[in-house]
Structure formats: C-alpha cells, structure tokens
C-alpha cells in the first residue's frame, strides 16, 4: 500500500484560509488501511477544522466525504456533487489522488492534506514500514526476498557497508541493516553463494531517473467496456 501522514492541522488551516466552503475528501484504499486519510480521518479533520474556526470566531462550511479510490476517475465522479459545492478540497489521498482530482476537475482547487510517504506493509497494528521504491527492475530473486534498494539506506547492491553494526544501520540503531537481513535470509534458504558475485551497476533509467514513467497496454487502451465485460 501507499502510506502517508496527515499534515499538521495548522498547515491545513493555513491552506484553506479565506475559502468559504471546504470539502475534506478521504480515500478508501491505501490511506484508509494505514489510518491516515480514510473516511474516519476525513471526519476527524473536518471536525478539528470546524472547532478551530469556532474558537477563532470564523464561520465557514466544512464537511467531509469519501470515495473508494481518488486515483481512479470512475470513483472520483461519485464525489461530483460534493465537489461542485466546494470552493476548495483538501484531499486526504496520496499525491496520486490529489493530482488525479486536479486532472479530472480542472477548475477545482485541491490541496494536499497528507504527506505521502512510502510503499510499504503493515508490520504490526500501528506500524508501517517501507518495502519498495518502484525502481522498475526487481532484484528480489537474488537477495532472498529482501530489497537492497529500499532496505539499505544507501541502496547498495553489494553491501553491507562498514556502518553495519549489531544488525543495525549507521543511520539509526532502530533501522535494521538491510544487508544483514539479506545475508540472514540467504543463509536460511541455503543461497549464500549468491553473494559471491559482484552485482553490476543498476540500470536506473528504468526508475524515475529515466523521467516520469507510463505503463501502456495497447490491447486494452481506450476500450472503456473492458471492465463491464468482465462483470
């Protein structure tokens, strides 16, 4: 999932300063799961903003709504009535959602209510951890299913560096050394010999370094009825 952290209330309040009708729009997918920008957080944010305004004697309309996925036009259209009423929308989706809203509703002012953080997993209730940087050239089969690009602070392909100590990264003792994890895992599955090889430099052109990426499937491109056909 994509994770995020809601921006501080003061920052959101400063963004919507001067607008009369403020919609807080949650997103029902990733950011709901990581408890950052779903319906519940949208409700909480609207409530907190209203209270803040009341304390300062500011009267404005602040309400919330939620859609299944803000990165999908089909779902965004479900919020069209809310959007039509709003002077400004604070989107609690990830950065993809915010940008897609601006594309789908070109006249609308949309501000981000979250700082989008990473692609990751739920490690335990209340703890999320980064797992993938979307480099476009997966090497997990070589590294025992532990990503060196993401889990090594230096994205080293031939680690660990000299800063690995007692299983921890030099950046912070609370970060496990990604290469210690890789070595432990390869040892456990009997594939330690994989590390004898010096891995060549990565082709970063497949990552964002090659420019913003697109993914095109010509066989389904422009055929709106694909989804309906499947149903």
């Amino acid at each position: 999932m994509i994770t995020g952290d809601r921006k501080p209330l003061e920052e959101i309040a400063a963004m919507v300063e001067g607008f009369e009708r403020v919609l807080i729009l949650g997103c029902g997918t990733c950011v709901t799961v990581c408890m950052a920008g779903g319906e519940r957080e949208a409700e909480e944010t609207a409530l907190a903003l209203r209270l803040r305004g009341r304390e300062r004697g500011v009267s404005r309309e602040i309400w919330y709504a939620n859609v299944e996925r803000q990165c999908d036009e089909e779902f965004l259209q479900e919020a069209v009535d809310h959007v039509a009423r709003a002077d400004v929308v604070v989107s609690l989706a990830c950065g993809c959602g915010v940008q897609h809203m601006v594309t789908v509703f070109p006249d609308l002012i949309v501000y981000p209510g979250l700082n989008t953080t990473f692609m990751g997993v739920t490690e335990e209730l209340g703890v999320w951890a980064e797992r993938c940087l979307g480099c476009g050239d997966c090497v997990l089969e070589r590294t025992g299913g532990v990503c060196p690009i993401t889990r090594c602070s230096k994205s080293l392909l031939n680690g660990p560096c000299g800063g690995s100590a007692d299983g921890a990264c030099e950046v912070d003792k609370t970060i496990p050394c990604g290469w210690q994890l890789i070595i432990d895992r390869l040892e456990a599955i009997g594939q330690l010999q994989r590390l004898d090889e010096v891995l060549p430099p990565k082709d970063w052109s497949k990552s964002h370094s090659g420019g913003p990426r697109f993914r095109i499937r010509e066989d389904v491109r422009g055929t709106d009825d694909v989804e309906e056909g499947a149903q």
């Binding site: 230096k154 392909l157 010096v198 891995l199």
Partner: peptide, 11 residues
C-alpha cells in the same frame, strides 16, 4: 549512490 564502492572499483 548511483553505484557502490565495488561497482566503482570495477568501473
């Protein structure tokens, strides 16, 4: 960290 020290040596 486009490359690491081993890749630098090889290059």
């Amino acid at each position: 960290w486009d490359i690491d020290s081993l890749q630098q040596l090889a290059m």
